[in-house]
Design a protein around this nucleic acid. Sequence first.
RNA 1: GCCGCCUUAGCUCAGUCGGUAGAGCGAGUCACUCGUAAUGACUAGGUCGUCAGUUCGAUUCUGACAGGCGGCUCCA
Length: 666
Amino acid sequence: MSEIKVVRVHADVRQDQTVTTGTKAWELFAEDTDVIAARVGEGEGSSLKDLAYELADGDVVASVEIHSPDGHDILRHSTAHVMAQAVQDLFPDAKLGIGPPITDGFYYDFDVATPFVPEDLDKIETRMRKIIKEGQRFSRRVTTDADALSELADEPYKIELIGLKGGAGVEDAAEGASVEVGAGELTIYDNINRKGEAAWSDLCRGPHLPTTKRIPAFKLMRSAAAYWRGDEKNKQLQRIYGTAWETKEALEAHLHRLEEAEKRDHRKLGRDLDLFSFPDEIGSGLPVFHPKGGVIKREMEDYVRQRHIEEGFDYVGTPHISKEGTFHLSGHLPYYADGMFPPMEFEGANYYLKAMNCPMHNLIFRSRGRSYRELPLRLFEFGHVYRYEKSGVIHGLTRVRGFAQDDSHSYVTPEQAPGEIKHLLDFVLGLLRDFGLDDFYLELSTRDDSKPDKFVGSQEQWDNATDVLRTACEESGLELVPDPGGAAFYGPKVSVQAKDAIGRTWQMSTIQYDFNQPEGFDLQYQAADGSRQQPVMIHSAKFGSIERFLGVLVEHYAGAFPPWLAPVQVQAIPVADAFSDYLYDVARRMKLQGLRVEVDDSDDRMQKKIRNAQLQKVPFMMIAGADDVAAGAVSFRYRDGRQDNGVPIDEAIARVTAAVATREQV
RNA sequence: GCCGCCUUAGCUCAGUCGGUAGAGCGAGUCACUCGUAAUGACUAGGUCGUCAGUUCGAUUCUGACAGGCGGCUCCA
């Protein structure tokens, strides 16, 4: 037995060690039970290994702790295996799809004759606990394609994955498919029970926990259908989502976070705060704004209209419907017909509800001859568009069938395009800042070169436009996520992606480069040399959709809006009836300053009025009783329970006015 | 659109093993006039999502449709 040298890295401490050949990774970290795997190598070339990995001379071996990001993935992926074993124990005919770790959890897809129901999840959980208790060992076994194909003859989906292995297809095959089959050697993990037999096996790249007993806490969350390999044309498999954590406390904390997130859901707050509703009578995905929601919507509109004017845009207006020719000119009809409501036929023409505003703006541009001196020509409006969204995708205000875009189009010379893109990006980022949004990233949507029929224009045009957008984004210093294939048919797009309370990301602001519609509409301007030139058109929407932005805003603030957006800025509460008139007088003075004030002169006791104002998340509660009247003052109470008694009336008005003007949160 | 689940008063939810229903909050009325998160009493609200079918009888069972929820796919 000879000796080898390795470097042990644990808790940020590097340490050279000499061990005998045949030493396993776990022996380096045996004293720390949080260590569940090892990372061997450093930087790009490093890879995660099971603790059963046999050390090689020169290895740099870092511990992977269960609560680290890598550790979470390994824990969750291992739990997915346990779940799959439990499912196949209980439902022997279930065929395995894929089972990767995801943010906060994992899933596994199964092909079963009957979809799972909630009671099935209970049974599966019970079975999983038994497997965990048995302490089955995850054992790695290298195999060959041929052996794996025969061993997995009953698993058609795994066989399909083996067929993709090594090819370009693996990463594209399905989200998470690469955890099943890596690009390198093919491995199978056996779950070895106490008798030393393989209780269950799965094709998997690994690594895994040493044993099932190392799963401290897990819970199955829900089941749902998912298309095999993410393709609508494929069969739907039944997916079970679960979550797993390093401790029971961490699991509880996670479940608590989910509960808290539900309380921020804009659909719930929209009802509780009387902001908006979705009457069935009108139709799915068609919201109505109540007076309080209307205030927020109007503040948003006032803000963005004013800002557009400041940024050099002209405010225009266009109709909601148009004869179909407009959308043929724009190129939308062949590409986008499925996304539009069916046409209405009358007077021998087909009229469509518009799904976008650009064609209308193009017609404004084309209404007379244009000079290069007019460029950039910037048109803006609140364009109400209607899109035929599939019934299953409608979601509160964030995915609707009728919505208003704060839509603008900048017509520029090709040379002006980069500058205009930067201008628009700065505009958008400033808007997000003013609305207090900070949890977002940029996404660059480009064309899918493998589907040229879905995109108009030459490779050169696309490359050029994409470069212009990418450069502007990179200069912003923000995180930029690529979105290949996500572009509109007419050009690449930059978008702002923001998260809602339950972690779903929504596309908000967009900036799109368009070299196609100017051609379709034969848009021209006369250049300095007298020649006719084609402008570049840049679409941008700063909120994206007023509705979606408002929905995200509700969740961002959990309904506790900063004063400038709050439907009621000041709720006046008399200590007793006798002080109502005094507060009405203060309220009248505040209203003269443009503030939104309400006096609660109901029969309720003041404690109840405070509770009501608190539940309505009003930023300023303005209370007055005998003491305040005597002092010519009012008392403030804030949403966090903070109090400020005896504030002179003039100062009180100034304080609220200042909070509104500076858009600060209180 | 696809898969699963759900739909009882304005909201949150009980309930009826098939014989047309109840609570809390909210709303209205009255009394109480009160200093920082729920005063009390009383009253009014529902052809149990819609339409069919089975049945002597359907809110309950079955089906279709509509709407919602969770995913998938797709998108501002």
